[in-house]
Amino acid sequence: MDCLPTPDMCLPRMRGGVLLDCISSEALVALHRMEEEEGFARFTCRPVQRRTDQELLALYQQALQDRNRLICGLYQAKGGPAIGKLTVSDYNPRNRSAELGYFLLPAFRGNGCMAKSLYMICELLLLKLGLNKVYAQTGAFNRSSIRLLEKMGFQRDAVLRHHHVLEGQEWDDYIYSLLREEFPRNIDRME
């Protein structure tokens, strides 16, 4: 597989009241603005550039067309507003790996919504599409993200020391990965 499938080829996917489906660039702009309100520096250690809505719209329209990236919206119901997103990026066909990123609106956290979403995307990538590995990076301060990844069976591979600055404090970033043979086949036993 030289590139990731388009969203319409692999979505929608549903599990336990959570729907992974296509997302519009307009919905991505709205989620981006909500991430900013919460404090965008919590979610990334990468440089953050302030953009206008028009610039973000163009950026997300281009990202949705990128065949080495897959962006999914998280919904509670078909036709409802997006409550979060899952991004598959840095797809490498040579070693069959990709990086995962995720965001969920605060009102929907803590109820298993992201665990179900992460399970669905890992199932798609590892079992259906045959990737060897998926990985994610999170700040050492982000206990909920660490718990989520470890609950899903991800293993901590590396520590990037003093890699994430948040509110003037330097934090380590952790890199986690999940191999296809480690993927838990039954999410119900993890809940």
Rank of each mutant, 00 (worst) to 15 (best):
S177D: 06
R180W: 00
Q169T: 14
L179P: 06
E170W: 13
R161C: 13
H164K: 08
E181V: 06
D172P: 08
H162Y: 15
L178G: 04
I175H: 02
D172M: 07
L179Q: 09
A158F: 03
F183R: 00
D173L: 07
I175L: 11
G168K: 07
Q169P: 06
E182Q: 12
E167S: 11
E170M: 12
E170P: 11
V165F: 10
E167N: 13
L160C: 06
E170H: 12
D172F: 06
H164G: 05
S177P: 02
H163N: 13
W171D: 05
L160D: 03
Y176Q: 04
F154M: 04
F183S: 02
L178N: 01
H162P: 02
D157R: 10
F183K: 01
Q155M: 11
H162K: 15
W171R: 10
E170Y: 12
E182I: 01
R180V: 09
H164T: 02
D172L: 08
Y174T: 05
S177W: 06
G168R: 07
L160Y: 14
H164L: 05
D157E: 15
L178W: 04
E167G: 09
L166Y: 15
H163M: 04
D172V: 09
R161H: 14
Y176E: 05
F183V: 00
E181K: 10
E170C: 11
H162S: 15
V165N: 11
R156Q: 15
I175R: 10
H163Y: 12
I175Y: 06
V165Y: 10
D157G: 08
D157C: 10
R156A: 00
H162A: 15
V159H: 05
I175E: 09
S177E: 07
V165T: 13
D157M: 10
V159C: 14
D172I: 09
F154N: 00
D157S: 10
L166C: 10
W171I: 07
R156W: 01
L160W: 13
E182V: 01
R180I: 02
W171H: 15
E170A: 14
H162R: 15
H163R: 09
A158Q: 00
Q169R: 13
R180C: 09
V159W: 06
R156M: 10
W171Y: 15
L160K: 08
A158P: 03
F154W: 02
L160P: 01
V165I: 14
V159Q: 10
F183P: 03
R156D: 03
R180N: 09
L179A: 05
H164A: 05
E182P: 01
H163S: 11
A158M: 03
L179K: 03
H164Q: 06
V165Q: 14
V159D: 05
I175S: 04
V165K: 13
Y174L: 07
L179W: 06
H162C: 15
E181Y: 09
H164F: 06
L166W: 14
A158I: 02
L179H: 07
R161A: 14
E182W: 04
H162D: 15
Y176G: 03
L160S: 08
